[in-house]
Simulated scan of single mutants.
Amino acid sequence: MSGKRLFAVRGATTTERNTEQEILSQTKTLLQELIDKNDLSREQDIVSVMFTATKDLTACFPAKAARKLGWTNTPLMCAQEIDVDDSLPKCIRVLIQYYAPEDHSPQAVYLKDARKLRPDLINE
């Protein structure tokens, strides 16, 4: 891939409730924000996406939101986040690996209560 290099970017969000609609809505918002901030052209540049969800989110897989965005050929994986004492509840995290121009600077996205996870990366 001439002129491009492999990058990875993180993001996270939280939900109010453990419902399929809420999980899909918040994950879709997170993914759209990551696409916009990193100028991703979806499946052409994305190599793979890893999602984790805290143990209190069981209504659906967050990856389903990516499929609803049209990512039908992108490898997606979901896992349960490690259950650490006093960790942020109802949290969905994502790691996207993608190709971009060599001078690209990945822009992480942390929404809702997940902003507490990495306040150093919040760009307002």
Rank of each mutant, 00 (worst) to 15 (best):
M1P: 06
V9N: 02
T15I: 04
E16H: 12
R17N: 15
R17L: 11
T19C: 07
E20P: 05
I23K: 02
I23N: 02
I23R: 05
S25N: 13
T27I: 03
K28E: 10
T29S: 09
L30E: 02
Q32S: 10
I35H: 14
D36G: 07
D36L: 11
N38F: 04
D39W: 07
L40W: 13
R42P: 00
Q44P: 00
I46F: 08
S48M: 08
V49C: 06
M50A: 15
T54H: 04
K55P: 04
K55H: 12
K55T: 12
D56K: 13
D56A: 14
T58W: 08
C60T: 15
C60N: 03
F61I: 03
P62Y: 00
K64Q: 10
A66F: 05
R67D: 08
N73P: 00
P75G: 11
C78M: 13
A79L: 15
A79F: 13
Q80V: 14
I82L: 14
D85S: 12
D86Q: 15
L88M: 01
P89W: 00
P89V: 03
K90A: 01
K90E: 03
I92L: 04
I92R: 04
V94M: 11
I96E: 02
I96F: 06
Q97I: 01
Y99F: 11
P101N: 12
D103M: 06
S105W: 05
A108E: 09
V109K: 07
Y110L: 00
L111P: 00
K112Q: 11
A114E: 01
R115C: 01
K116I: 03
L117M: 10
D120L: 03
L121V: 02
